[in-house]
């Protein structure tokens, strides 16, 4: 497959996998540390409502997805802050509603056979330079933001009540985090698909969490795992001519199962 690497679209795909890996490694660390995996899933699926909206209203897909996902994410954020124990209900409703609305609006749009699969699993092999630029810009902004507010984000993630007593603007930080998750989802849905976004956001950080001593080292590890999963998955996809998003998820899932098995073995060795 050496000669493929000279093709522009293959280079773009690998660049997208690396950028997505970096972005999701950082944002995903917050998602997992905050136990917000379910909310990230809800945001990603609700994004499909934005796809339908964009087709129906004949506006650029990016605008539709951004608007709809942003509103859905803020509603989830505000309601889950107000009633923590009912957060899963709110998220479930918006999750299903977003998907259903998307399907209905695509049905109602004449002449459009919108490709559901490409939004679910993405089409990393057709990533445009513009999408890459958007991903790079978002990755840079997220890096700067998390570097500036690292200690506050850590405190808010670990212990919201203590952070509030210390006088930190917890609600603002929490909603900003949700907005970052929403932006990440929006930028990545077109590239890697909404199912792969959740996989990228959660699998590597889950593996990294166990062996890390700080949030930073968890981020570094997550980024590393994500890039490995992305590159290996993409390689399989090109070599076997199978859907790239699905191949990447399978590699990531295999990595997850391997890490679970390894820690079980290690535990048994310690006990025995």
């Amino acid at each position: 497959m050496g000669e493929w690497l000279h093709l522009a679209f293959v280079q773009n795909a690998f660049a997208a996998a690396v950028l997505a890996g970096v972005l999701c490694g950082i944002v995903g660390t917050y998602v997992v540390a905050n136990r917000m995996g379910y909310m990230a899933g809800g945001i990603a699926h609700a994004a499909y409502g934005g796809v339908g909206l964009a087709f129906f209203m004949k506006i650029p897909p990016m605008v539709g997805i951004l608007g709809f996902t942003g509103v859905a994410a803020m509603v989830m954020g505000v309601l889950s802050l107000r009633e923590r124990h009912r957060a899963d209900t709110v998220i479930s409703v918006l999750w299903a509603f977003g998907m259903a609305l998307g399907v209905l609006l695509v049905d109602l749009t004449p002449g459009y056979g919108a490709d559901l699969m490409s939004y679910l699993f993405g089409s990393i092999l057709t990533v445009s330079r513009a999408s890459l630029a958007a991903m790079a810009a978002l990755t840079a902004s997220v890096l700067i933001f998390t570097a500036l507010f690292h200690k506050e984000l850590l405190a808010v993630s670990y212990d919201e009540h203590f952070a509030r007593v210390r006088g930190l603007p917890v609600t603002t930080f929490y909603l900003t985090l949700i907005a970052i998750i929403a932006l990440t989802v929006v930028v990545l849905v077109q590239v890697v698909g909404l199912i792969l976004v959740i996989a990228f956001l959660t699998i590597a950080p889950y593996i990294a969490e166990k062996s890390s001593r700080s949030l930073q080292s968890m981020m570094f590890r997550s980024v590393f795992y994500n890039i490995v999963f992305g590159a290996v998955g993409l390689g399989f996809s090109l070599a076997l001519n199978v859907t790239s998003g699905a191949a990447i998820i399978c590699v990531a899932a295999a990595g997850y199962f391997a890490s679970v098995a390894m820690s079980a073995v290690r535990q048994r060795m310690q006990n025995g």
Binding site: A33, R35, L154, S157, Y158, D159, E209, K210, S212, R213, S214, L215, S217, M218
Partner: peptide
């Protein structure tokens, strides 16, 4: 209520 496995020293 605190995440016991949070990576933190």
């Amino acid at each position: 209520h605190i995440n016991r496995f949070f990576p933190l020293t």
